[in-house]
Amino acid sequence: MRIRAGSPGDIEQIATLHADSWRTAYAGIMPHSYLSRSLSGDKLALWHGRLTVPDPAAGLFVAVEEGVIAGFVYLTPCPDGRLLLDNLHARPGRTGTGIGGRLLRHALAWAVTEHPGRDVYLEVLRANTRAIAFYVRHGAIRTAERVCRFEQGFALPELEYTWAAQSLMTSGPSFTLTGQGPDPHA
């Protein structure tokens, strides 16, 4: 597996993986009607917008195995000075194999290099306990709780987790961009 920057040529694979990941991770959490209806089209539109006119300050990285995207991570700067880790997904059936841990370490190392001094945070649905356990294992600290309101007409409790800039700067080699070994915890 290798990690590389994402590109416009990856739009369809990323959108499909994103929709498939949501259908798996959020089954029983989000309404079935939403997950089974227009999710693929929504994700395709999202990634088309992000990658046809990319934000030069954002970071998109894909994990590729035998020409197929096995996972991806996307970070974007926010007006409050932090970086939002907006997406981290491994292909369903490949979770727990180290892909997520490697992508996360790569993304955090990129954040330290490209956006030094900025906290990195993410929002995760409170019911997504597997993801929460993963982020906590990788050093994230819970920093807020709120309700996420979806434009499709439903609301769910979500938590915010953060990696403080100072902790990222002092973490050293655990956030290396060149490490290629599997993470037994992801």
Score class of each variant (00 low, 15 high):
Met1Leu: 04
Arg2Asn: 09
Ile3Gln: 04
Gly6Glu: 07
Asp10Pro: 02
Ile14His: 05
Ile14Tyr: 05
His18Met: 06
Ala19Glu: 05
Ser21Cys: 11
Trp22Gln: 09
Arg23Ala: 14
Tyr26Pro: 06
Ala27Ser: 14
Pro31Phe: 08
His32Phe: 02
Tyr34Ala: 10
Ser36Met: 08
Ser38Gln: 13
Ser40Gly: 11
Ser40Leu: 12
Asp42Tyr: 01
Lys43Glu: 14
Leu44Met: 10
Leu46Lys: 10
His48Pro: 00
His48Asp: 14
Arg50Gly: 01
Thr52Gln: 15
Pro54Val: 08
Val62Met: 06
Glu65Leu: 13
Gly67Thr: 04
Gly71Arg: 04
Gly71Phe: 02
Phe72Lys: 03
Val73Ala: 15
Cys78Val: 02
Pro79Leu: 11
Asp80Cys: 02
Gly81Thr: 12
Gly81Cys: 08
Arg91Trp: 02
Arg91Leu: 06
Pro92Tyr: 01
Arg94Gln: 14
Arg94Gly: 09
Leu103Asn: 06
Leu104His: 08
Arg105Cys: 14
Thr113Lys: 11
Glu114Trp: 07
Glu114Lys: 13
His115Asp: 00
Pro116Phe: 01
Gly117Glu: 00
Gly117Tyr: 01
Val124Ala: 04
Val124Gln: 04
Ala131Lys: 04
Ile132Trp: 02
Phe134Pro: 06
Tyr135Leu: 06
Tyr135Thr: 11
Ala140Pro: 02
Arg142Met: 11
Ala144Glu: 11
Cys148Val: 08
Gly153Pro: 12
Leu156Lys: 13
Pro157Phe: 10
Leu159Ile: 10
Leu159Thr: 07
Glu160Thr: 14
Trp163Asn: 10
Ala165Asn: 09
Ser167Glu: 15
Ser171Thr: 09
Phe175Cys: 11
Leu177Trp: 07
Thr178Cys: 01
Gln180Thr: 14
Asp183Gly: 08
His185Ser: 15
Ala186Glu: 10
